[in-house]
Amino acid sequence: MEVKIGLRELRDVPWNTSLAEILEAVKETCDYCRPLTPLTCVTECNVWRLKKDIRELRERTKDRNFWVDLLNTLKNKRRLRILQILSSRQHSIVSLQRELKKSGYYHSQQTIAEEYVEPLLDVGVIDEEHGKYRATLLGYKLSELTKDSSDIEEVLPSHSECYEEKTIEALHRGPKTYEELKSLILTESLSRILKRLKETNLITKGNENNYVFYFKTRRAPREETLSPTERRVHKNIPEEGIVAQGLAVRTNISLRRTYKYLRKLRGKKLVFKRISPKTYALTKEGTEIAKLLEKIHVLVTKLTRASAEFSAISYEVIQQIPALDVPEERREKPREISVRA
Rank of each mutant, 00 (worst) to 15 (best):
K4W: 14
G6R: 06
D12P: 12
P14N: 00
T17N: 06
T17P: 04
T17R: 05
A20L: 13
Y32G: 13
C33W: 05
C33F: 06
P35N: 00
L36M: 15
P38E: 04
P38C: 08
C41A: 03
V42Y: 09
T43E: 15
N46Y: 07
N46C: 07
N46P: 11
V47M: 04
W48F: 15
K52L: 15
L57T: 08
K62N: 08
D63I: 01
V68G: 03
D69C: 09
N72V: 08
T73G: 06
L80C: 07
L86C: 07
S87Y: 01
S87I: 00
S88D: 13
R89Q: 10
Q90A: 14
S92D: 02
I93Q: 04
S95A: 03
Q97H: 09
L100D: 00
K102L: 13
Y106I: 06
S108H: 05
Q109L: 09
Q109P: 09
Q109H: 07
E115D: 15
L121E: 12
V123I: 06
G124D: 02
V125A: 07
I126C: 02
E129H: 12
H130L: 13
G131D: 03
Y133G: 10
Y133L: 05
Y140W: 04
S143T: 01
E144Y: 11
D148H: 11
V155E: 05
L156Y: 00
S158I: 13
S160P: 01
C162E: 05
Y163S: 10
E165K: 08
L171S: 02
P175R: 04
E179F: 12
E180I: 01
E180S: 02
K182F: 03
L184P: 01
I185D: 00
R192Y: 14
L197W: 02
L197S: 06
T204F: 08
T204N: 11
G206L: 06
E208N: 12
E208P: 11
N210R: 12
V212C: 04
K216H: 00
T217S: 07
R218Y: 08
A220Q: 13
P221H: 03
T225Q: 15
L226Y: 03
P228I: 01
T229D: 14
E230Q: 04
R231S: 10
R232Y: 13
E239N: 09
G241M: 01
G241S: 02
A244E: 10
L247I: 05
T251Q: 05
L255K: 03
L255Y: 05
L262D: 02
L262T: 01
R263C: 13
K264F: 03
K264S: 11
R266Y: 05
G267H: 03
R274I: 06
S276H: 11
P277T: 00
K278C: 00
A281Q: 13
T283M: 04
E285A: 13
I289L: 08
K291I: 10
K295G: 08
I296R: 09
H297Y: 05
V298S: 13
L299P: 10
V300I: 07
K302H: 11
R305N: 14
Y315W: 14
Q319H: 15
I321A: 09
I321E: 12
L324I: 00
V326R: 15
E329A: 12
R330E: 14
E336N: 10
E336K: 11
I337N: 05
V339G: 04
